[in-house]
C-alpha cells in the first residue's frame, strides 16, 4: 500500500513540480521559438508516458500485492500487445523527431544576408570582430598572432583593414537583424552561449564553426561559456547587448578598425601590403 502510494506520489509530485516550478526558462530573445516549442511538445508527449507508466505501476503494486492463496498469471508473452505498444511508441517518437528535425534544418541553414560577425574565444575571455564598411571579414591565421595583432589578421588582406576589432567581453547587436556568428578559438574548446538566445555551438581551435539567430528584443544578456575550457571556465562571461538602431550606431562609432588600431600603435608599416592592395582595388 505504502509503496503504491510512494510511486503515485513521485509521479504526481513530479507533475506538480513541473506545473508550479518557478525555475523555468527566461523569456526568449531570439527567433528560436521553434526550439522552445519542440521542448514543450516533448513535455506533453513524454509527460503523458511518464504519468501513464507511473500510475500503472502504482496500480499493479496495489492490486497485485502478494497473497499466498493466489497465483500470478502464467503468460509468457502477448505478441499482439507488444506489437501494439511498439507501434504506438514509434508514432510518438516520430511526432517528436519530425518537428525537431525541421527546427534543426532552420538552424543549420543560414539565411542570405545574415550579418557576419566573428567571435573569438580564448582562455578566458571573448573578443569580437565586425566586417566593417565593406561587409567582408578579412582572413586570419593563428600563426600571425602576436602582441600587435591579437586577432591574427592576415596583414596582406585588404578586406581586413576596415574590420572592427573589439577586445572586450561585451558585444552589441542590432535588434531584428539576422546574424551569423563565425566562431573561432585560439587555444582550447569554448562555447558561445546566451541562454535567452537558446542557440550554442562549440568553438574549436583549428577550424571555424558557426550558428545564426535573430535577436528579437532589446536588453542585456549574459554570455556563459558552455564548453569546459580549463580552470577559468566558470569566469568566462560577458554580455550581449541588443540595441535599437540609434544606440547601436552610437556604440559602433566608438569602435576602431584594424587599420586605425595599427595606426594608433604606430605599426602601420606592418600592414603595408594590405594598404597597397586596397589602393589597387
Amino acid at each position: 500500500m505504502i509503496v503504491a502510494l510512494l510511486v503515485l506520489l513521485v509521479t504526481l509530485g513530479s507533475v506538480a513540480f513541473h506545473l508550479w516550478s518557478p525555475w523555468w526558462w527566461s523569456e526568449i530573445a531570439s527567433n528560436w521559438v521553434g526550439m522552445d516549442n519542440t521542448i514543450l511538445l516533448s513535455f506533453w508527449i513524454t509527460g503523458a508516458v511518464f504519468v501513464a507508466i507511473g500510475l500503472f505501476t502504482a496500480y499493479c503494486i496495489w492490486k497485485y500485492k502478494y497473497n499466498k492463496n493466489r497465483r500470478a498469471d502464467y503468460e509468457p508473452e502477448n505478441s499482439k500487445l507488444e506489437w501494439f505498444l511498439t507501434i504506438i511508441t514509434s508514432i510518438g517518437v516520430i511526432a517528436l523527431l519530425a518537428p525537431g528535425l525541421i527546427v534543426w534544418n532552420n538552424f543549420v541553414t543560414v539565411p542570405k544576408g545574415a550579418y557576419e560577425i566573428e567571435v573569438v574565444g580564448q582562455q578566458w575571455a571573448w573578443m569580437y570582430r565586425l566586417p566593417g564598411k565593406d561587409g567582408v571579414l578579412g582572413t586570419t591565421d593563428i600563426k600571425n598572432i602576436d602582441d600587435d595583432n591579437i586577432f591574427g589578421m592576415n596583414t596582406d588582406d585588404p578586406y581586413g583593414l576596415d574590420d572592427i576589432l573589439i577586445d572586450a567581453d561585451d558585444l552589441h547587436l542590432l535588434k531584428d537583424q539576422a546574424v551569423k556568428l563565425n566562431l573561432r578559438a585560439l587555444d582550447v574548446l569554448h562555447d558561445f552561449y546566451v541562454p535567452q538566445f537558446r542557440a550554442k555551438m562549440d568553438m574549436v581551435p583549428g577550424m571555424i564553426t558557426y550558428y545564426w539567430f535573430t535577436p528579437i528584443r532589446t536588453g542585456e544578456f549574459e554570455i556563459l561559456c558552455a564548453e569546459y575550457c580549463g580552470t577559468g571556465h566558470y569566469a568566462m562571461l560577458g554580455y550581449v547587448i541588443v540595441d535599437e538602431q540609434e544606440d547601436y550606431d552610437e556604440w559602433l562609432s566608438e569602435q576602431m578598425t584594424f587599420e586605425e588600431i595599427m595606426a594608433s600603435n604606430g605599426k602601420s608599416d606592418l600592414i603595408k601590403l594590405a594598404l597597397n592592395k586596397k589602393n589597387d582595388l
Binding site: M35, T38, I39, S42, L96, P99, L101, A199, K200
Partner: peptide, 12 residues
C-alpha cells in the same frame, strides 16, 4: 528523448 532530438539539445 529531449537531448537526442538535435534541435532540443542545442539549448540544453
Amino acid at each position: 528523448l529531449f537531448l537526442g532530438n538535435v534541435a532540443v539539445d542545442v539549448p540544453l
